[in-house]
């Protein structure tokens, strides 16, 4: 749940790569946000069409199901970059210096191994639904209006691959911190204590409420 401020930046190669990858990750996360917005529009079209014209959106449920992987996967690397995937940091939060980097490195390596397996597994899931010889290349289709499922299934291995890149960068950055014995390495989310984290979060949430319509808001400064 920590925000952007927790990732430091410097001139090192790993930090420069971090910022490059961040741009990709933000685009993907925004796609995910736009997919949420489209859910809202879809419902308005569906309810409106049904009541005003007796013309409900054909395959409303099928379309929602297609949009869900967009929402669920596309931002996964961005959230990992920000340290936003929740965890219990009561133990790890007590560690400092090399001990901390060792734990983090180990944890990130395990996640990397897992995600490589899941890229493989989710790719296989996609591959079973894809067939060049079939109409629309489809070997699996939605229940109601028969939309091919392979594009939605493909999103998982794509998003997970970007996450793997992010994890490789984090392995590098934590490894660097471990070897060099850094206090505050760049390119990885640093643990804030719970209070600092809460303060940061609260700062992101409020502000707007005092000045709706104020586009110079702090939350937008990160792009």
């Amino acid at each position: 749940m920590a925000g952007n401020a927790a990732v430091l930046e410097d001139d090192s190669l790993v930090s420069r790569l971090d910022r490059r990858l961040l741009q990709v990750e933000q685009v993907l996360a925004l796609i995910s946000g736009l997919a949420v917005f489209s859910l809202m529009v879809l419902a308005v079209v569906s309810v409106g069409g049904r009541n005003a014209f007796n013309a409900p959106l054909p395959g409303y449920v099928d379309w929602i199901e297609q949009a869900m992987p967009l929402i669920a996967f596309m931002g996964i690397a961005y959230v990992q970059r920000e340290g936003g995937h929740i965890r219990m940091d009561i133990v790890i939060g007590a560690l400092r210096g090399r001990a901390l980097w060792l734990f983090e490195l180990f944890s990130v390596l395990l996640i990397l191994a897992l995600m490589i397996c899941l890229v493989w597994g989710s790719w296989a899931h996609f591959a079973r639904s894809f067939d060049f010889a079939a109409p629309l290349w489809s070997r699996d289709s939605s229940i109601d209006i028969g939309i091919p499922l392979w594009p939605a299934k493909l999103l998982a291995p794509v998003a997970f691959s970007v996450l793997c890149l992010r994890l490789v960068l984090q392995v590098w950055a934590y490894g660097r911190a471990l070897v060099l014995g850094l206090d505050a390495p760049a390119a990885v989310p640093l643990i804030q204590d719970a209070a600092a984290q809460a303060a940061h979060e609260a700062e992101m949430l409020t502000g707007h409420d005092d000045a709706p319509g104020d586009s110079t808001d702090s939350r937008n400064s990160q792009g």
């Binding site: 996360a29 925004l30 946000g33 929402i71 669920a72 808001d217």
Partner: peptide, 24 residues
């Protein structure tokens, strides 16, 4: 109330982050 694209974008981005966290 005068919400601009920049604010909508950040609302969508924050929504996406929280949603991705939960879905993961």
């Amino acid at each position: 109330r005068g919400m601009k694209w920049a604010e909508l974008k950040s609302a969508l981005l924050e929504t996406a982050k929280l949603a991705v966290m939960i879905f993961s």
